[in-house]
Amino acid sequence: MVSTSPHIKIQMLSKQYEGRGRSRLVLDQIDTTIGHGEFVVLVGRSGSGKSTLLNLLGGLDRPSTGDVLIDGQSLAALDEDALSRLRRHKVGYMFQFFNLVPTLTVAENLLLPLDLLGVAEPEAESRIRDWLAAVGLAGRATDYPDELSGGEQQRVALARALVHRPGLLLADEPTGNLDLTTARDVLRLLDDLCRRSGTTLVMATHSQEVIGMADRVLTIRDGRLVAADDMAADDMAAR
């Protein structure tokens, strides 16, 4: 399932934020690759830069130096509109706060990415049906997000992230807002669906349980990538 050419290439990526007279180096020369279908987890303390890295991977933000290549395509070379198009085709998102559009129904939320791609109506409808069933919300198509529980909303968000078959799913603390049981269910669903569809999954999280499920763990400390082994050693030391 892991193909030979890398899906994502992160090259000497750095991000600096200008504050009030001060500047902060959030990411410092991150360099690594992620293969197709890999499940990669980003761990680190709050403020360590994981969200920033996730943003940069999806083209939501621009690096100060360095570049991200997705399937060989350099993100730095693209302008805003091209980045938008890239996101439509190749990227799916999940956020901590679900971020469903409150004034659209569940089905309409799922229709959004398909509509942007210009998928024909019958095909779109069928896909929406399939994905809703896959996340176990078959009968809730016409409900509005505020009628769903947190877990259900996140499951809709998951379906929305995958319905347009992006190669890449970026998840930022997707279980941060859920209770333990629900979080576990959602994670399992997430892992399962990504593996089955061959989608590369990059997730920023605190959850220990997720770390166990992942193929690879990238630790970020003070903006830098720390070797997995070092992390394991630190953990041992901490315990």
Binding site: D81, S84, R87, R88, P113, L116
Partner: peptide, 10 residues
């Protein structure tokens, strides 16, 4: 913002 992440253009 959500729309923008989904790829809706400006």
């Amino acid at each position: 913002g959500t729309f923008r992440t989904l790829g809706v253009s400006r």
